Amino acid sequence: MIAALHKQAIQLLLDLINTPSFSGEEDETAGLIEIFLKKQGIEYHRDQHNVWAVNKYFDEKKPTILLNSHHDTVKPNKGYTRNPHEAVIEEGKIFGLGSNDAGGCLVSLIATFCYFYEDRDLKYNFVLLASAEEENSGDNGIRSMIPKLPEIDFAIIGEPTLMNLAIAEKGLLVLDCYAHGTAGHAAHSRGDNAIYKAMEAIAWFQNFKLPKVSETLHDTKMTVTQIDAGNQHNVVPATCHFVVDIRVNDLYSNREVLDLVKEHVQVEVKERSLNLNSSSIAKDHEIVRSGISLGRDIYGSPTLSDQSNLSCPSLKLGPGDSLRSHTADEFIYENEIEEGIDLYIKILKGIV
């Protein structure tokens, strides 16, 4: 059965790669997932571009595990030398946009769900969710599905981790900051230069270290990534806008970091969202212990995923390498998918 699942999962991945599915445009890949589940004899549901299912003998009295990954992709970057929407296998590598992030994880989780689907004696229920709009943190992805799914006790989020256990993930807080001054002629001493005010705040972001350091996610990292001011060489600008990217560890909420920033900088600060908080699962959780028993490492992930939308404990785990995500000529190894399916099943067998 597992060998057949390997083959079926890889074919599904090839089909997904061959079908463009940018965030918000995942209708056709959702249809492919529906067809796959139907062929497996699995009853499924679809909500916009999200496809989900529960195990055949779902029991409301049992706790529930969410198996989730996404089928949308970013747009290909200009460095591609291959057709990003043409799946090609060469020397054991599957090339194509979304192969590594997160197609390999998605098809591996779907295969894992199929493996357990008809088991009557599970200690846990399973919910499978192939979600949309992960790459753009859209409103019509996992966030829209959480109220519609059964209550989840913990989740496995399929993202490329080399099948190691990412037990914590940094949150994301993006700030638009505006330094305000007074316009004036550059040749005179008149004018209150907004750029200089922005520079003071930027220096604070560069040098300030938040005191709480996490065991798994280390420090909270603040980086100024964009700046914009002025439109003429001889005019002192009245406004300087800059953007700050903040990766928040699991010892702070996004609200706490925002409040701290506003206490220290003398510029206007507007947050884009407070929803993308850090997430984690205890090191002694049974799913983590099961993975460790199979020789998998634990670590904290600096990258954001749909974990940030969940209020339950969650583990990021999947085949592929995060360093390949969003790169030109993206790929995943065939044997990574096969090993991913095997390890997902073994880890879950350790608790179900």
Rank of each mutant, 00 (worst) to 15 (best):
V248E: 00
S322F: 09
I292T: 12
E169L: 04
H70E: 02
I157C: 05
N335I: 11
L276K: 03
L260C: 03
E34M: 11
F95M: 10
Q232F: 13
Q206L: 01
L149M: 14
H45R: 14
H233V: 13
E135H: 03
T239V: 14
F205R: 02
H6P: 05
A201M: 08
I202D: 03
K170D: 02
K62W: 08
S311L: 13
L260S: 06
H264A: 02
E86H: 12
E159V: 00
E339K: 09
N254L: 11
E338D: 06
P63Q: 10
A328W: 05
G318D: 06
K197C: 05
T112E: 10
D59I: 07
S253K: 08
A186Y: 00
D139Y: 12
Y117F: 15
A203W: 00
A87D: 09
S131Q: 07
V267C: 01
L304G: 03
I152T: 10
A201Y: 01
I202G: 01
Q11G: 04
G318Q: 10
D72Y: 01
A183W: 00
N254G: 10
I89N: 07
Q8K: 14
R190T: 14
D259M: 06
E151M: 14
D47E: 13
G181P: 00
S69C: 02
T112W: 09
L106K: 06
R143G: 12
E86N: 10
V74Q: 01
E151N: 13
H71E: 00
N277Q: 14
L12G: 09
D101C: 13
D119V: 15
K56Q: 15
A87P: 09
V288L: 05
E169W: 04
I345W: 13
E133V: 04
I227H: 09
K123V: 10
F205Q: 05
I347F: 06
N50Q: 11
Y115P: 06
I35N: 11
V267G: 03
I152L: 12
N18S: 06
T327W: 03
D329K: 05
H45F: 13
R120H: 14
I341S: 08
T327S: 12
I17N: 11
G92I: 15
E28V: 06
H285G: 12
K209N: 04
K123F: 07
I202T: 00
L294D: 06
P84I: 09
S144R: 15
I167E: 11
P211T: 00
G295Y: 11
P150V: 10
I17R: 13
L317D: 04
S253Y: 05
E271T: 14
C312S: 10
E200A: 10
A166P: 08
E338K: 14
Y299L: 15
L315C: 09
G158E: 07
S314A: 14
N309Q: 13
D59M: 08
N77A: 01
